[in-house]
């Protein structure tokens, strides 16, 4: 083991070349958020993953981001346990009614500026589970979504591309959403949130994979609030 570990120092890591930011996503993100207040977080983002009722396929792929091949940490991204430490909520699954409150509370516990990334087909609009009595349908029904990563499940490379777009974006001045106290309830947020465009088509056998793309969605929020207000 020692030999292998020391050998690792000499070997080149088997990492894939860093995926560039997903095309289009960054421009979208910037266009949507620039009018909000200017906070620059730099090349460092902490991610709190939330499973809001997914089939755990997305979780498998998200976990894979930590392995040597994708090596999430080289971009300055890392997963954290407490939402208090997080900047990004990476949410998967069609929000089940049973997880609705928990998702909202976690969102509320996260300090501003923060982003919500909807990851996977179900997270966008409920996916195959849309219409069930148990499912609220789409993350944006509960919290505002800033970035959407489709696919069932999206491959690690696709998730990584989305997250890299986000970090590129956060490294640029004038990126993040405002900071301010808020007291809304789940219902308020849901009302505030405009129905974002849905991904065309369901998830079929052949389009399920490789068709993953990153879409940016508007985050319609209340009136802009400046830092420190």
């Amino acid at each position: 083991m020692l030999v292998r570990i020391l050998g690792n120092l000499l070997r080149r890591p088997p990492v894939i070349p860093g995926p560039g930011p997903a095309p289009g996503a960054e421009a979208e993100l910037a266009a949507r958020l620039d009018r909000l207040s200017h906070v620059r977080l730099g090349r460092s983002l902490a991610i709190r993953q939330i499973d809001a009722g997914s089939c755990n396929g997305c979780e498998l792929e998200i976990s894979a981001l930590g392995n040597r091949k994708y090596d999430l940490e080289r971009f300055g991204l890392r997963f954290v346990t407490s939402p208090r430490h997080a900047d990004v909520l990476l949410v998967t699954g069609p929000v089940t009614h049973n997880m609705r409150e928990a998702l909202y509370r976690t969102w509320q516990a996260t300090p501003d500026p923060k982003w919500v990334v909807a990851c996977g087909a179900c997270a966008l609009d409920g996916g195959v589970f849309r219409g069930s009595y148990g499912v609220a349908g789409g993350i944006d029904q509960v919290v505002p979504v800033h970035l959407r990563i489709s696919g069932c499940p999206p491959s690690p490379a696709e998730i990584l591309a989305g997250l890299v777009a986000l970090i590129e974006h956060s490294a640029r001045p004038g990126s993040a959403v405002g900071v301010g106290p808020r007291e809304e309830s789940v219902a308020d947020v849901a009302q505030e949130t405009v129905e974002p465009p849905r991904v065309a088509g369901g998830v079929g056998i052949h389009e399920a994979h490789g068709a993953g793309q990153v879409l940016a969605a508007p985050a319609e929020r209340g009136p802009d609030r400046d830092l420190g207000s």
């Binding site: 570990i5 020391l6 690792n8 890591p13 990492v15 040597r68 090596d71 080289r74």
Partner: peptide, 8 residues
């Protein structure tokens, strides 16, 4: 690097 990753 010891774990074979590029690391932060």
């Amino acid at each position: 690097r010891l774990m074979g990753r590029q690391g932060p």
